[in-house]
């Protein structure tokens, strides 16, 4: 088991190294210059721009810039943003990530609490009115763009009813609308997944056996089916770990939430090298750890899966 984890971590390091090279090269191959963008329409001379580039070390050869960056990264220094230059990138990411994580964790817990029972019940009572309601509801949830849902919710709850603020996370009321939008999107995915996984399991031999040995239907479902049906849900949770940190860009933009997704997109647009690189690094580390954790949790839920 320990050996397995060590091997997986070593593989992960190689992947991270490759990702770091890939990100660095890609970012620097795209034409564009943060300094030029930052100066904007103000009067400027070439000498002045060169001086500022030098201040940021952007005049150094690329391999040297790469080595400097990786070296600092290993020491825990994520570098410096050219745009938000009064603050280390580490602080920028930590602040933005905490906002995004809070928002997504709340949404995720709510989604699971609703989606798992709903999917399960829909599968057990297949073709019932409830099943149809879940299917239609989730189809609509998947089909509607979250951008549109967000704006409609703002119109209804902020403009017409005036119950909730239209933007910002200044109070608990501020969380209601963004969380709702994320929940609507995830609910659709998770409930459908839970429903189909339950249906698959209900047709399995062990279910017939359990019923044959005289277990009540509720016992069959709760003790045998649910546990197996949760496997795909765990996979999705593992996958979504990195996605949770970067996947709510649209919601963040609509509700003016200062999260990691927004920071990432804005930094890409303004070619803020160190910020983009650092975020990609953090996300790739999370994906690797997330996948490892998923595999380990598999073993706990399903004893048939052996690791080692």
């Amino acid at each position: 088991m320990q050996r397995y984890i060590a091997v997986r971590l070593a593989q992960g390091l190689v992947v991270i190294l490759l990702v770091s090279i890939g990100t660095f090269v890609m970012l620097h191959v795209i034409p564009g210059d943060p300094v030029s963008l930052m100066i904007g329409q103000a009067p400027a001379s070439q000498e002045q721009i060169d001086l500022i580039r030098k201040k940021w070390g952007l005049d150094r050869p690329l391999p040297e810039q790469y080595v400097t960056w990786v070296g600092r990264m290993l020491l825990g220094d994520f570098g410096q943003s050219v745009v938000r230059s009064g603050m280390p990138v580490r602080t920028m990411i930590a602040e933005a990530a905490s906002v995004t994580i809070t928002l997504n964790l709340i949404a995720f817990v709510i989604s699971i609490l609703i989606a798992v029972p709903a999917g399960l019940f829909a599968a057990v009572r297949r073709y019932s009115a409830f099943d149809y309601a879940v299917m239609v509801g989730t189809t609509v949830g998947v089909a509607l763009p979250n951008f549109w849902i967000g704006l409609m919710l703002i119109v209804i709850f902020s403009l017409v009813l005036r119950w909730l603020p239209p933007f910002g996370l200044g109070s608990w009321q501020g969380y209601v609308l963004p969380v709702t939008v994320i929940v609507v999107g995830q609910l659709a995915l998770l409930a459908r997944l839970m429903r189909s996984a339950t249906l698959d399991n209900l047709g399995e031999d062990f279910v017939r056996t359990a019923r044959a040995k005289g277990l009540r239907e509720s016992g069959v479902v709760i003790r045998h089916v649910v546990r197996n049906a949760l496997l795909p849900i765990v996979t999705v949770i593992g996958y979504r770990l990195a996605f949770i940190l970067s996947g709510t860009i649209v919601v963040e933009t609509v509700f003016a939430v200062p999260g990691l997704g927004m920071l990432f997109v804005e930094s890409v647009n303004r070619v803020d090298y160190q910020v983009v690189q650092a975020i990609v690094m953090v996300l790739s580390i999370l994906v690797i750890l997330g996948n490892l954790a998923t595999d380990l949790v598999y073993g706990l839920i399903d004893p048939r899966i052996r690791i080692g």
């Binding site: 239209p166 933009t253 003016a256 200062p258």
Partner: peptide, 18 residues
């Protein structure tokens, strides 16, 4: 000064008095 990237949300905030 609040940061509100979406133009239509800025308009709604002006209408709602936020």
């Amino acid at each position: 000064e609040d940061v509100v990237p979406e133009a239509s949300v800025r308009a709604i905030a002006l209408r709602s008095g936020a």
